[in-house]
Computed example of a mutant assay.
Amino acid sequence: MDNKLTPFGSDWDKVLEKLEANKAAGLELNAEEENLLKELQEIRTDAAQALKVYIDFDTDKKWAKLKQQIQPEETDKNSKKKRQPIKLWLRISAAAAAMFIIVGIGLVLQKENQNVKNVFHNDIPAGIASATLTLDNGKKIILSNDNSGQLASESGILISKSADGEVIYSIKNQTENAANKTHTLSTVNGQTYRLQLPDQSKVWLNAASSIKFPASFAGLKNRKVELTGEAYFEISKDKDHPFIVKTDQQEVQVLGTHFNINSYEDKQNTTTTLLEGSVKITNEHQKQQLLKPGETAIVSNTANILVSPADIKSSMAWKNGDFRFNEERIDEIMLKISRWYDIEITYHGPISKEKFSGKISRNKNISEVLNMLSYSNAVNFIVEGRRVTVMQ
């Protein structure tokens, strides 16, 4: 069974479903039913609020799905509308389940102090907005150490840093050879940064990633960049000059669009998620695939390009400052965590086969992230320096 912190699925939510359906249908509830309805609604709200501390549980979606499954059972004598009776045994079951949920919430909230077996010899803070900009002449600029304003000027291209921490390229008095100069923006583990390219396209660079690009696109047929790691792109429209992102396994060609590419070497595949516009993907076997908004393409060593509906929230979580796990194994999750917190991961014993779902801010210390993962009792952690040991 997957590890999800959820209070739903017992008889009490079926009772609440029936009561709400009857009331929505205009059927009058008696005093006992009104009291039961109010009590169960309060329990639902309390449960959802408590669990949201640790899990991004979509209560609206869950309850909408339940209401769609309602089937009328009995016709009320004073109405042509069908009424769904609340049987005594369901009321008793609901009351018992409600008490179980209340106790369960208390256990979840107290678990950090009572049951979690994690050992933290020290804590590790979240990553920061930082990167290294390498110019064509080899000069390196450590961006976290520079104040806002002008950073450098090369071949008539002005490179500056905004007050909110974005590297911006702008044309001053461009010379012809600016397009021949290659610049690289790179991050290491624990770093992320934003970049505005010479054509005003925007790039968000995730940890342990790099992007190579010309100091100017002027005079070039294509606006071509090279990516390792992960980045989110918002590309300026220019139908005469397609924008191309090259990775080890593919090339993505666009005119103007928003998309995310994940091409970390430890994943062994490249994932492209399209949010807006359209893109054409060409893999190393010269197979091509057009993507529509809301689709994800996976390119691996095989000849085919696999296309499926995108999990936009999960794909965009890092850019929005969150971790979001959706039915993921602990080893997959720890890869993301290791890049952001710049840590070494070791495993003591077999790797858990359980799958995890949840959301938490990337601004939290690592202890809070690991505690959330261990609420399932499937895994525990030991933190020593910058080494994290994972145990079942």
Rank of each mutant, 00 (worst) to 15 (best):
K246E: 15
L5W: 03
T175N: 02
T132R: 04
G156D: 02
T132I: 07
P309Q: 07
S93E: 10
W204I: 03
G127T: 02
Q114N: 14
K23F: 11
T132A: 01
V299Y: 00
A310V: 02
K161T: 08
N301L: 13
R83W: 15
G219C: 05
E344W: 11
K246M: 00
I159P: 00
D123A: 04
R194T: 09
E166L: 04
H183V: 10
S338A: 15
A179I: 09
A97R: 05
A208Y: 04
E327F: 11
E265S: 15
T187M: 07
E276Q: 15
K246H: 11
T175S: 11
D311N: 15
K246D: 09
H258V: 10
K61D: 11
V53K: 12
S144T: 09
S357F: 07
L37P: 03
E230A: 07
I312H: 01
D331G: 07
P350Y: 12
I124M: 08
I105C: 05
Q268W: 14
K18C: 00
P125M: 08
A129R: 13
G138R: 04
F120A: 02
L133P: 06
G256L: 04
V119D: 00
T273G: 06
I211N: 02
Q68Y: 08
G156H: 05
I124V: 13
F100I: 14
E74R: 10
G149K: 04
Q49V: 08
S160W: 02
T182M: 15
K65L: 15
E328F: 10
L227A: 01
N326W: 06
K62D: 13
D146R: 15
E176I: 07
I124F: 08
K224D: 09
I141H: 00
D266G: 06
A207K: 03
E39L: 10
K181H: 04
Y347E: 02
